[in-house]
Design a binder for these strands. Structure first.
Length: 154
DNA sequence: GCCAACGTTGGC
DNA sequence: GCCAACGTTGGC
């Protein structure tokens, strides 16, 4: 089982939106970065756990936990000319972009802010807190997962 | 709203 | 294959 942090802007799609979705499940689509695409396509599997991270908000940070509930499959939004994430270079025959379904598991007892993550000595080298990191999905080790969980307990 | 960081595009 | 221009992300 792999562990991840997945970022989304709460103004666009936040933890509350996921919790309110049917069965608490929704498609994590719209990824248009090759590094992130590769992580989804090659390493995400059903049963993986993921922190839900609110980006581009004040304060940014980890707010909840979800579970990957599908294998990777071609991102249908890439095929839809009316979609914001339409990419004519991706076709059903040769899909360029991938997505997974995720299910809401829980809200954390309290948000763990980016600042707290940065200030935590046990998280040194964690890619999420690297300056200039722009990947919307980041792998998390079991140890890092436990540290973040503990921070969320307050 | 600003701007640093970084990915992508396209001319050459 | 280099690199400048441009667009986007995302913290602040």
């Amino acid at each position: 089982m792999n562990r991840w942090v997945m970022k989304s802007e709460p103004d666009v799609f936040g933890i509350d939106d996921l919790a309110a979705a049917p069965q608490g499940t929704d498609r994590w689509d719209g990824v248009r970065n090759y590094q992130v695409r590769n992580m989804i396509r090659d390493h995400m599997r059903p049963g993986d756990a993921a922190f839900f991270y609110h980006s581009n908000t004040r304060p940014p940070g980890v707010v909840g936990v979800m579970e990957v509930v599908s294998g990777p499959y071609p991102d249908p939004t890439a095929f839809d000319p009316d979609d914001l994430h339409y990419d004519p270079k991706s076709t059903p025959e040769a899909p360029r972009w991938y997505c997974v379904d995720v299910r809401f598991r829980e809200r954390l007892p309290r948000q763990v802010t980016l600042q707290e993550l940065r200030e935590c000595p046990d998280l040194e080298g964690f890619p999420l807190i690297r300056r200039g990191n722009r990947l919307s999905i980041v792998p998390v080790t079991e140890a890092q997962w436990a540290v973040i969980r503990r921070l969320a307990e307050g």
